[in-house]
Structures are given as C-alpha cells and as structure tokens.
C-alpha cells in the first residue's frame, strides 16, 4: 500500500451513538458492553464534553513515541499507517504506557503473561482494502477514512467553507509530529482534554537529543580516559625512575589531587 491511511474525525458531526465502539468490539471480538473509557476491552471510547463527543483511540502517530521507547521493537509503525504490536517480542517493561502522550496502551495487569491492548487501526481490514470497522459503522460521517493527504485537503476545505463553525486547526496534522487521526472541533482543543503542552516536535526527538550523544561519549571519553591514564602512568614511571636514580628531580614532585 503506497498511500498512508488516516481518519478524519469531525466533532461537529458526532452524535454520540457509540456505533464506532460497537463495531470495533465486534471486529475485535470484545465483550459488547458500552464503555466510557479506553480499556482492555474498548479500543475506542467517546469522551463527553457538554454536548460534544470526542473519540479517543490510538492516534497512530507518524513518529510514534511508543515505537521509539520500546526496547525490543515490539511496536512498529507500518507503511500503511497502523502502529502494530507484537506480543511475542514484548518483555512487559511498560515504557509505552509511561510514554504514550495520549495514554492509549492498556495493560493486562491480571494476566501472568500480560500484553498491551490498543486500537489496531484494523490493519487486517486495511490490507484487504476495507475501511476500519469504526469508520464503516459511523452513520453520520463523523469518522471518515481515507488517504492521509486527501483527508488533510478535505479537512482544510471544511474549515474554509464554514470558518465560523470550526476553530482553525486540524488537530493531528502536525501535533507531536503528525498523527493518523485528524480532529476538527468547534471549540479550542484544550477544552476537550487535548494536552496543550505537547508541541509539534515528535516526542522521540526529546530522547534522541540525549541518545545521539552516546557515540561521542564513547569515542571522546575513551580517548580522554586513555590519555589521562597515559599521563598519570608516565608521571608515576618518571617519578619511580628518578627515585631509583637517586638524582635530584629536575622538576618538583607533583602532588596528587
């Protein structure tokens, strides 16, 4: 699949019918009860803010924090867009739970062989050319599935067509480096539980600023320590030699720190 897939979630169109969650649960064979929050058995859930419903689900970031922190690469960003999880690799360090800026991964705490659970962006359906179950089930078109670039154009078109209806921002276009879930909202996103402290830089960059120095520490540090040893060792040798020659030292004996 060449084009990156995405979903456009227009909060003004969502009526809170919960069809997305029902379809998701059916697709993933989860217990069909209605849930208000993301959980092991709810990969998507509707958050209610006054008369607005905000769909929570894995954002399938372009530069995913979870993928970057996973020590064994159990999480990976696939070309089509979904962030996939391989429980066979997972060691259960839970760094992804700690790091995900959207608090998405949920952990099977009660299991002795725990895995994480989260939205899979219906990767098997996408592979067959089908839209995700939630997008297919949405009766109002509040969740629209398509190619990432086309959806961005569509989102911009909607804001242009009715500038009074939306705040002029496509959430997810470049937040934390861009995601696969775009949100359009009539009120500022900060009022809807979107974390305003996250900028446009992908979170993994914060770590890379430190990790990128590792090779330097190793090479420069190695040379430096080797040099220090060479100097101090030679100094000791010279002192020993001078002492053995019982000559007056040409330079005064150095003091140890």
């Amino acid at each position: 699949m060449s084009q990156k897939k995405a979903m456009l979630i227009d909060l003004t169109l969502c009526v809170g019918c919960n069809a997305c969650q029902s379809a998701c649960k059916e697709e993933n064979r989860l217990p069909p009860n209605e849930e208000k929050h993301l959980s092991l058995t709810a990969y998507t859930a509707l958050d209610k803010y006054n008369d607005l419903y905000v769909r929570r689900l894995c954002q399938h970031c372009d530069v995913p924090t979870c993928v970057s922190v996973c020590p064994v690469g159990a999480l990976s960003k696939t070309e089509a867009g979904p962030v996939a999880y391989d429980a066979e690799k997972c060691i259960g360090c839970r760094y992804c739970l700690q790091a995900c800026p959207f608090h998405v991964p949920k952990y099977e705490w009660s299991s002795t062989k725990p895995r994480i659970q989260k939205c899979k962006f219906c990767a098997p359906r996408l592979a067959r050319g089908l839209p995700p179950a939630c997008a297919e089930a949405c009766p109002t078109g509040a969740t629209l599935f398509g190619d990432r670039e086309e959806l961005l154009i569509e989102a911009a078109r909607r804001i242009d067509a009715e500038p009074a209806k939306f705040v002029h921002r496509i959430y997810g276009k470049d937040d934390v480096g861009g995601t696969s879930m775009f949100y359009l909202s009539p009120v500022p996103f900060e009022q809807l539980g979107f974390d305003s402290r996250m900028g446009k830089t992908p979170m993994p960059m914060l770590t890379m600023s430190a990790l990128s120095k590792v090779p330097n520490v190793l090479s420069v540090g190695g040379v430096l320590l080797g040099g220090v040893w060479w100097i101090t060792n030679r100094r000791a040798k010279v002192q020993a030699f001078e002492a053995s020659q019982k000559k007056d030292p040409t330079c005064p004996p150095e003091d140890k720190p």
């Binding site: 993928v67 970057s68 922190v69 996973c70 020590p71 064994v72 690469g73 159990a74 690799k89 997972c90 060691i91 259960g92 360090c93 839970r94 760094y95 952990y107 062989k113 725990p114 993994p204 770590t207 890379m208 430190a210 990790l211 590792v214």
Partner: peptide, 26 residues
C-alpha cells in the same frame, strides 16, 4: 521481577531498538 514477561528478559540481547533509552540501558 518488574518485567511483565520475565521469561522474555533476554529479548533486548537479540531484538534491538537503537531509539530506545531502555534498550541502551539494558
């Protein structure tokens, strides 16, 4: 003991992710 899958503790040896601080630490 802290790992959810202690039986997988050796995975960082063979499965690398150079972007992960956790990988570097292990």
């Amino acid at each position: 003991i802290d790992l959810g899958r202690p039986d997988h503790f050796w995975h960082p040896l063979v499965m690398w992710n150079p972007h992960s601080v956790m990988c570097e630490i292990s």
